[in-house]
């Protein structure tokens, strides 16, 4: 099936309505990947624990990327891990979304200058929602998930598959080997 919404015909009422239904279903049943990287992972776990309970909204963690819909990048991505993050993203079945959780995943955070840190996971995978904070509170993550839910439910807000970002693999190279110099 893949990506509805991109080629939907507004004049076809039945298909259009089916698209809406499927988008609605997708938005109400988003299963994140159990994929913790760093500090934010603890808050990510916390968001499914009693006080916050992401399961209320239908967020149900799955271990294998094949069955997951959202990848929550919860922590610093370094050059060694960046390749695995990209692989994991490619392993996920369409349609898929990415939440970048915390300052490190957004832009490198306090480790931004370091030799081994990727300055933002959006250089490797396309990100749908950014959550600020170091680490963000579980409420912030839940809000990001709900934002994503609304985004998925409304096809006009969705990313267009043809424009999916090409990853900048230079960021994964050793310093000095990436064509840049001081």
């Amino acid at each position: 099936m893949g990506l509805l919404g991109s080629d939907r015909r507004p004049d076809n009422i039945i298909l259009g309505k089916l698209d809406d239904l499927i988008n609605l279903a997708r938005s109400r049943s988003m299963w994140p990947l159990t994929f913790g990287i760093a500090c934010c992972a603890i808050e990510m776990m916390n968001s499914s624990a009693p006080r916050y309970d992401a399961d209320r909204f239908g967020f149900f963690y799955r271990n294998t990327p094949r069955q997951a819909d959202i990848m929550i990048v919860s922590g610093t991505v370094n050059k060694k891990m960046g390749k695995r993050v990209r692989t994991l993203y490619e392993q996920m079945a369409e349609p898929k979304w990415v939440i970048s959780m915390g300052a490190c995943a957004n832009q490198g955070g306090p480790f931004r200058q370091g030799y081994s840190v990727v300055e933002g996971v959006d250089k490797i995978v396309p990100v749908d929602v950014y959550v600020p904070g170091c680490p963000p509170r579980p409420e912030a993550l839940l809000q990001a998930m709900l934002l994503l839910r609304d985004k998925v439910a409304d096809p006009e807000k969705r990313y267009i598959p043809g424009t999916l970002m090409e990853a900048d693999f230079d960021v994964l190279a050793e310093p000095g080997k990436d064509g840049r110099s001081l």
Binding site: K80, Q113, Y115, E174, P175, G176
Partner: peptide, 18 residues
Amino acid sequence: EDHWTIHPLQRRYDTGGY
């Protein structure tokens, strides 16, 4: 990673590894 050549904690490299 195995294929890296620099030893970044040497003082001749800056924080970014250059």
